[in-house]
Design a binder for these strands. Structure first.
Lengths: 219, 219
DNA sequence: TCCTTTACATACATCGATGAATGTATATAT
DNA sequence: ATATATACATTCATCGATGTATGTAAAGGA
C-alpha cells in the first residue's frame, strides 16, 4: 500500500532515527541495512528508495542536525566589545548545544566513537570539520584581538591561549561523548571552562563569574 | 619451507607492521586479512597461524606498545614535593612519548580515528583505557595535594583544575592524531601546556618556565 | 476515470571475506 | 636417523551483505 507524501517523510525520519540507534549500538561498519530496516519497521527496499546506500544514509543523519549546528556556530563574533567574553559565550553555547540536543550528541558520538575517519568519508564529515575549523578560526581571531587590546594575562599569547582553549574544548567533547558524561560532570565542565577563560584575563582579582552571570550575558 | 624460530618471529612482526599500515590506510573494518597479508608479503595462512582473527591481530598491535606505554605512565607520582611540577612533568612525558615513538602514534591514531569504539573491543582498548584512567587518577590526586597545600591559584579547585588539564590533554592527543600535527604545532602545544599549568599556581609573577628548565627537571 | 508515478516489499544474483581443512617442506627433538 | 611438530601456503565451503530487478497497491494528476 503506497503511502502519502507526509507518511513517506515520516518513514524517512524513522529510518534516520533507526540508523542512529543501530550505528551507536554496533558501529557504522557492522550495521547492515537489513538491521536498520528492522529497527525502523520497514524493509531494505524502503531504505534504498530514500537513500542510495549506507554512506548516504550516514551523510543524511549528519545533515539532519547541520542547520541547528551552523546556527550555534555562526553566532555573532566580530562586533562584541570584550573578545574574551565572546570566546566564553561561544564555548558555553557549544556546550549547551550538546547538553540540549540529543541528536547532536548521538551524531557526534557516532563520528567520534562509532565510525572510521577516512578521506573517502570526506562529505560525511563536513559537520565535524566545520565545527572544528570554526572553533579554531574563531578562537584565533578573538584571542588576537584580546592580545592587541592588552587583555591577556602575563605568560599567555594569542597562539597559546587559542591552542589551549581549542584543545580543552576538543577533549571536553571527546570525553563527553566517549564516556557518556552525566549532568554532574557537565556542570563541573562548565565550571572548569569559566576558570580557564578567567585565567586568560589580565589583572583579575577573583573574577570567576558565577554561572548565572555567564548565562545571563548570553541572552 | 618451514622457517626457524627467529624467522617466525620476524614474520610475526612484519604482519604487525603491515596491519598497522593497512589499518591506518583504510580503517580496521575494511582491512581484509588478505590485504594485510599482501602488505606483509605472506598469505592469510601465516596470519591465521600467528593470530586467531583480525580482532586478535588488533589486540596484538596494541600489546606491542603496551610496555613502553605503561613505563611512561607509571613514573613516580607520589614522592615528589611539588604536585604541580609533577603534573607538568607527567604531561610532558606523555607528549614526549607520542613525539618520540611512531608506533605509539600509529596505534593511537588507529584507536582514535580508524576503528569503532565498541564494548566488544573491550580487551583491545585496554591500552587506551589505562592511559585515560591513569591520567584522570594521577591528575585528581596531584591536584588534591596541591589544593591542600594551598598551591592552587584563586578560582581553581582540585576538581576544576584536574578536569581542565585532563580535557586539555585528551583534546591535544585527539587533535594531534586526527590532523597529523607537525613539529611546529607540537612545540606550540608544549608552550600552551606550560602556560596552563603555570596558571594553576598561586601568586605567580611571570612564572612560565622555559622549556629547557622544564625538561631538565625531568632527568 | 484512466494513466502514471510513487513508495515501498520481495526476490534474486553477485561478491568479498572469513575460517577451516588440507598440503608440505623443513626445523627440531629424541 | 627417524619422527614429530612447526610454519606456513593453498584450497574450499560458507555466509552475510550489497545492489538491482521486479512486483504491487495506492496516490495524485489529467
Amino acid at each position: 500500500m503506497r503511502r502519502t507524501k507526509s507518511q513517506s517523510e515520516e518513514t524517512r525520519q524513522r529510518i534516520l532515527d533507526a540508523a542512529e540507534v543501530v550505528f551507536i549500538e554496533i558501529g557504522v561498519s557492522k550495521a547492515s541495512l537489513d538491521r536498520i530496516a528492522a529497527e525502523a519497521g520497514v524493509t531494505r527496499g524502503a531504505i534504498y528508495w530514500h537513500f542510495a546506500n549506507k554512506q548516504e544514509l550516514l551523510t543524511a543523519i549528519f545533515a539532519r542536525v547541520y542547520d541547528l549546528h551552523v546556527a550555534v556556530l555562526a553566532r555573532s563574533f566580530e562586533d562584541a566589545v570584550d573578545p574574551l567574553q565572546v570566546v566564553l559565550d561561544w564555548a558555553l553555547n557549544v556546550i549547551e548545544l550538546f547538553g540540549t540536543d540529543e541528536h547532536t550528541r548521538m551524531v557526534y558520538k557516532i563520528i567520534v566513537t562509532r565510525c572510521e575517519y577516512l578521506s573517502e568519508m570526506q562529505e560525511a564529515f563536513t559537520l565535524q570539520r566545520s565545527m572544528h575549523d570554526t572553533m579554531v578560526e574563531n578562537f584565533r581571531r578573538a584571542f588576537e584581538r584580546a592580545e592587541q587590546a592588552g587583555l591577556l594575562a602575563e605568560g599567555w599569547t594569542a597562539a597559546t591561549a587559542s591552542t589551549t582553549l581549542h584543545c580543552f574544548m576538543s577533549g571536553l567533547l571527546d570525553n563527553w561523548l566517549r564516556y557518556d558524561f552525566n549532568a554532574d560532570v557537565a556542570k563541573n565542565l562548565r565550571a572548569a571552562l569559566l576558570c580557564l577563560v578567567a585565567g586568560f584575563r589580565r589583572n583579575v582579582a577573583v573574577p570567576v563569574p558565577s554561572e548565572r552571570e555567564a548565562r545571563s550575558q548570553l541572552a
